[in-house]
Amino acid sequence: MIQQVRIEDKLYDVDIATSANGVTAALNGTHYSISQQGQGKFIVTVDGRKHAAACVIKDNKIYADVDGVLFDLTVPSIDMDIAGGADASVGVKDKIFAPMPGKVVKILVTVGQEVKAKQPMVIVEAMKMENQVNCAAEGIVKKINFKDGDQVDTETPIIELELAAELK
C-alpha cells in the first residue's frame, strides 16, 4: 500500500507492507523495518541503524519525533477533505479556490500543463497549517492568478482550468 506523506513541500511515497513478521516500508529504493513499541511509538531500522520515532495525529497533521528531531507532516489524502477539493467542489471544477483565507505557499503546476483529478495543484497556508488543494477533474491549466507568497481569499480562484470534458 502506498501511503503518501509530505514534509514541507516534499512528497514521500512510502510503500507500507504489513506481515506476520511486522511492518516494512520501501521509500526511494531503501528498505525500512518498523517495529512498533507502543501507541504511535516505533523503532525504525534502516541501513543497520536504529531510530526511535513517535507519531501523533492531530488536526490533519502528523507530529513526529525521530531521535529528538521534530517533524510536521501532512497527508495529501487528508488535506483533500478539508480543502473542499475533489468532492466538495462539484459545479466549480474548473476553478481552484483556497479552502480558507491564507497565503499561497507553492503553486505546483504551470499554465498549459495537463492535470488529472486528485493531482496536487497548490499548497495554501492558513491558521499556521498547510493545506494541499487538489484538482477535481482532468484538464489543462488555463490561468494562474497568484504567485508563491501571495495572500488569498476564498472568493478569487487561484487556478483556472480548461476541463477535458469541455475540450472534447
Partner: peptide, 16 residues
C-alpha cells in the same frame, strides 16, 4: 537525513 525515517514512521502510523 532523518526526513525519510519520519516519513516511514508516519506512514506506518497512518497504516494502522
Amino acid at each position: 537525513s532523518l526526513s525519510p525515517v519520519a516519513a516511514t514512521a508516519a506512514a506506518a502510523a497512518l497504516a494502522q
